[in-house]
Design a protein around this nucleic acid. Structure first.
Lengths: 122, 122
DNA sequence: GCATCATGTAACCAAAAGGTTACATTTTTC
DNA sequence: GAAAAATGTAACCTTTTGGTTACATGATGC
């Protein structure tokens, strides 16, 4: 997954209604576009736009069956991020107490070395 | 964490430079705003704007020391999402084989029950 | 105390985002 | 075959986003 793809996934998740769409599709695999309508206060076309964003981020895959479009949730983008977070941050979230200790150490270290750096101005 | 906060966090993560800022701050706790400049092709003020977004999402906390501002990474928002994902999706990502099996079952189930729903139009 | 440094705000602009109504197309139903 | 259903596109508009340059302010160094 390329950085641009990460942008797309996080961006897709950055809207409440889109997260709710994902929940609905995940809990109702194969549901249709029109099944989503009653759950939202916005227009059908707004929902179509949200679906387009989710599809581009690969969080939703769909198939056209006659005049209907069946929607499915795709866990892969989220799993990729989840796994990447596990790799990068697992040392940071050992637990509440360990975490506070780490934070304090980080701040002490910062004060000890927060000095000479290269300078540049925009 | 409220849904609006989730919007803010995902939105903050939805920009490549902002993720890179987070990496830099995480690996250099207590670094200053100007330390970030050399790593990016955009202007200093653009970076300040990114920092404002990250701060609002609580992914970065900072303290003013004299004329400098020291930056620290805050793992909490990401940990909250991570834990929530673990709760909601752990059944979905048991493994590649199990996942494919689940997907097939989901699609078969969808075809069997993808029928009567309420209708509404925008 | 003055010049420099580090950060921050203001103003501007183009592009993107998020919504709307109107129109179009294909498939299904009767 | 005509009407209804389901989806999709186009056009429009307001707001937000992401960038820029210019200006401002307080702290630091000499």
């Amino acid at each position: 997954m390329m950085p641009d793809d990460l942008d797309a996934v996080f961006s897709a998740l950055a809207h409440r209604d889109r997260r709710r769409i994902l929940d609905l599709v995940r809990n109702n695999p194969g549901c249709r576009v029109e099944d989503l309508g009653p759950h939202f206060a916005t227009s059908r076309v707004a929902i179509l736009k949200h679906l387009k964003v989710l599809t581009k981020a690969e969080l939703i895959v769909s198939e056209k069956v006659g005049r209907e479009r069946l929607l499915y949730f795709n866990i892969m983008p989220i799993q990729i991020i989840y796994d990447r977070w596990a790799t990068e941050f697992s040392a940071l979230w050992a637990g509440p107490i360990a975490q506070i200790k780490y934070r304090v150490e980080a701040e002490a270290k910062a004060k000890a070395e927060a000095k000479p750096r290269r300078k540049r101005d925009g």
